[in-house]
Nucleic acid binder design. Structure first.
Length: 219
DNA sequence: TACATGATGCCCT
DNA sequence: GGGCATCATGTAG
């Protein structure tokens, strides 16, 4: 089940900008199973298993609902760029912009399945993993199941990553795909919001043990 | 200039 | 299952 980075190397290719120039709901669903990649001091790879769509100015729960401001301007820019914001005085959350210039919309990354650089991600989270091969799934899940957790695992901050191009080979933060096929997708309401809380815009890979929340189903 | 609050996670019961 | 840390942002005054 677990793949080494070298096994993925021959088949991976970056997503292009047209992938992101679509309705956030389509982008969100299609992002499941893709790979988030960080090339920095360490080489990090993790599979996207849970996301949420934020629709833009007409979505009361979206940051873009406030209009174009200094904070959220990436959402109004071209598609395929990183929107990072700081929340609850503690956490960073990572999004990708969707739709053409001038039309706001985005997808929030909520949970990842660690693929490569697992020891480095665990260290960034201050999680002790004595033996990677024997590590319990419950321990691996702590690394990146949740928006704040996965940002910490990938070293994502607003200062470092806001406005980065996910589709450029010159970027150290990219989204790529391999031959992985998603078998099933579950759709539920979004987490942790008050406005428009009933809309089913949260997507995750059915049965993935790396989805956020206690039962890995709902929360 | 002040204030209320949030696309959260951790720790304690 | 619930309280709380902690601060940037938006909005009201």
């Amino acid at each position: 089940m677990k793949k080494r980075a070298s096994e993925l190397g021959s088949t991976i290719q970056p997503l292009d900008r047209t992938f992101f120039r679509r309705d956030p709901r389509r982008v969100a669903r299609d992002l499941l199973g893709k790979i988030l990649l960080r090339e920095g001091e360490f080489h990090l790879m993790a599979r996207i298993v849970e996301v949420e769509a934020y629709l833009g100015e007409n979505d009361p729960a979206a940051h873009a609902a406030a209009g174009n401001t200094a904070r959220n301007s990436v959402l109004f820019g071209p598609p395929g760029y990183a929107y990072v914001y700081f929340i609850y005085g503690n956490h960073y959350c990572l999004n990708v912009s969707c739709l053409p210039v001038g039309v706001a919309g985005g997808v929030l990354f909520r949970a990842l399945e660690p693929v490569a650089g697992i020891a480095e991600m665990a260290a960034a989270r201050d999680i002790e993993i004595p033996d990677l091969d024997e590590a319990r799934p419950a321990l691996l899940k702590k690394i990146s199941s949740g928006p704040g957790r996965m940002s910490e695992a990938f070293g994502v901050t607003r200062e470092r990553d806001n406005g980065k191009d996910f589709t450029s080979t010159r970027s150290d933060l990219r989204i790529v795909e391999d031959d992985y096929r998603v078998r099933g997708v579950t759709v539920t309401p979004r987490i942790g919001i008050v406005k428009a809380a009933e809309r089913p815009l949260r997507y995750f890979i059915t049965g993935s043990p790396f989805v956020s929340g206690r039962k890995s189903q709902d929360r």
